[in-house]
């Protein structure tokens, strides 16, 4: 059931985490958050979330490094990772998708659309 799904959002901007939190919690989904790549990787290992939202520009490691670390970990590599990016660049998008990202979502997209997109990647989701 999607109701029990855990989503981990890794972004250094608190307002984005807050906004995501409000909307996911409104749907009865648990949102865990991390403000740095290092914290994000640690929480991913500990929580084994159903889905990870990953910012491209983190204060410590790059989003790409974080993505690669997730994809190299046998325990985590199957978790879909959706990239959140402020940069509408096709090249950047391709780099992340090739590195194993499930999707590349622009931050200029409105929150409800983001939520809808994210839900479609949740395993066993009702919307699938």
């Amino acid at each position: 059931m999607r109701k029990n799904a855990v989503i981990l959002a890794i972004d250094d901007e608190e307002s984005i985490l807050t906004l995501l939190g409000i909307h996911f919690r409104g749907l009865g989904l648990a949102l865990e958050t991390a403000g740095t790549g290092e914290e994000g990787l640690r929480k991913a290992k500990a929580l084994k979330p159903d889905l990870i939202l990953l910012d491209v520009a983190l204060p410590d490691i790059t989003g790409l490094d974080a993505l690669q670390a997730l994809k190299e970990d046998p325990e985590l590599k199957r978790i879909p990772v959706i990239i959140l990016s402020g940069y509408p660049l096709e090249e950047a998008s391709n780099v992340f998708l090739e590195a194993g990202a499930a999707d590349y979502i622009l931050k200029t997209v409105r929150i409800r659309q983001v939520i809808e997109d994210v839900l479609s990647y949740l395993p066993a989701g009702e919307n699938q």
Partner: peptide, 8 residues
């Protein structure tokens, strides 16, 4: 109301 994640 349904804001974008980011308006820089």
């Amino acid at each position: 109301c349904n804001p974008p994640l980011e308006v820089r």
